[in-house]
Design a protein around this nucleic acid. Structure first.
Lengths: 229, 229
DNA sequence: GTCTTGCATTTTGTATACAATATGCCAAAC
DNA sequence: GTTTGGCATATTGTATACAAAATGCAAGAC
């Protein structure tokens, strides 16, 4: 026996419930601010209250739910300010990832990213937004992986899940899209040149643009129970 | 009624249990790698299993415990690598905090920090390590607060709690201490000059030094169930 | 008409009983 | 001597009953 003791991935009941809830939030069945009734959800998910409550705790830890004492859990609703802070943080995390990635990247990694870039540009050319999103995400995930810091990866994933789950979509238009694709090309070049500072800068700017696009769509949105974290 | 609906801070039972457990971990009563027996802890803390388990989930979310399905919870034991990654991340977070703080700092903030710096140098001069630690922490916390990003603050606090709870202490010596105090002086100057890039750089380097000091003490320490996150 | 007060109902919090799983030990097989 | 199988025990996982708290409504006071 060697040390690779990875048990067969068997979801525990609370984990499964959390996963299902996460999906319900992401799909927009449970909207931001919605309060979660334990008994109702128990019936819907077919689990009893104990594991459901453990699922609540997990999602609260991920920042998807807030739990108010004696008043149950509700889906977080980020205010404009909260969103601004979250994207600002994302910029910092991605910038750090880029910097580290530049220091550790291999030729194979670069080749893989170039392939993704080609696919991304093809999706862009044929206006295939879903594919574009998928590849975009793959590129950012790869950068993060290449950075080789699990603490970063964990933090990044959690924050990313939060932003995705809360349905922040940018106000898409052709000019911004073209710009984003161009930025990605520059990133790969900076990475290939192992220029960490430049890559960091590009990523921070890239996220800043995304932040602006998202904030535009939230222009005069009410606070709706906006909460910290 | 205005919107300041801050309820009287009344700790829920799971929160209280979590707090107590956190203390037990920080004080070293529960050592890294120790497995936590539910029944035992129930008796010790005077709560039943349900709230204790909720406390486990909370601490697991903070990265202080790992929960293995059907095998209970245990205190995380960070490997050398894990510690390296955590400190690297801390550097990135503090760097980001410094950058933002430089953009937002007020003259009052600077005055307050200068006062702390004087206190810190006094503690340093009289070899008062506990006070030094306390003020050091206050300075870093202030920088973080001035940065004005709650998402950052939350992440920073969680990671910091983890590093503290897991009892990472650096291999202290006079040269390193002198160096650290000098670095703090430079930081205040960079902040006063609103030079975000310089402050960021100083903080990253400062954390790197701390990382080195900690890693030295972990030189050839075994992995002991070292886990991710 | 508005504000308070008390009660019924709903919902959350905690304890505990029972079920499922893991652990350790001993005997039997190879 | 090592390995395998089966049991007894310990420990975790889940459901549920009961307790505590919050909510909503209606009746009465002002």
């Amino acid at each position: 026996m060697d040390g690779s003791n990875i048990p067969i991935a068997r979801l525990t009941l609370p984990e499964a419930a959390a996963e299902r809830l996460r999906a319900l939030i992401t799909e927009g069945v449970l909207l931001p601010g919605a309060k979660l009734n334990e008994r109702e959800l128990c019936e819907q998910l077919g689990v009893s209250r104990t594991p459901l409550r453990e699922a609540f705790r997990m999602l609260a830890g991920d920042g998807l739910l807030v739990q108010l004492p004696n008043r149950g859990a509700q889906v977080v609703a980020l205010s404009r300010e909260d969103a601004r802070h979250a994207f600002e943080m994302m910029g910092a995390l991605e910038g750090f990832a880029g910097e580290r990635a530049a220091a550790r990247v291999t030729e194979d990694d670069i080749a893989g990213l170039r392939r993704l870039q080609v696919e991304m540009e093809a999706a862009h050319a044929r206006d295939d937004l879903p594919t574009y999103y998928r590849i975009n995400r793959a590129i950012h995930d790869t950068l993060n992986t290449v950075a080789g810091n699990p603490v970063l990866t964990q933090t990044y994933r959690t924050l990313n899940a939060r932003l995705h789950a809360l349905r922040f979509r940018s106000n898409f238009n052709r000019a911004k899209w073209d710009q984003a694709v161009a930025e990605h090309r520059s990133m790969i070049e900076a990475l290939a040149a192992r220029d960490g500072a430049a890559l960091r800068d590009l990523l921070v700017r890239h996220l800043h643009a995304k932040q602006q696009a998202v904030l535009e769509t939230m222009k005069d949105q009410e606070v709706l129970g906006g909460t910290s974290l």
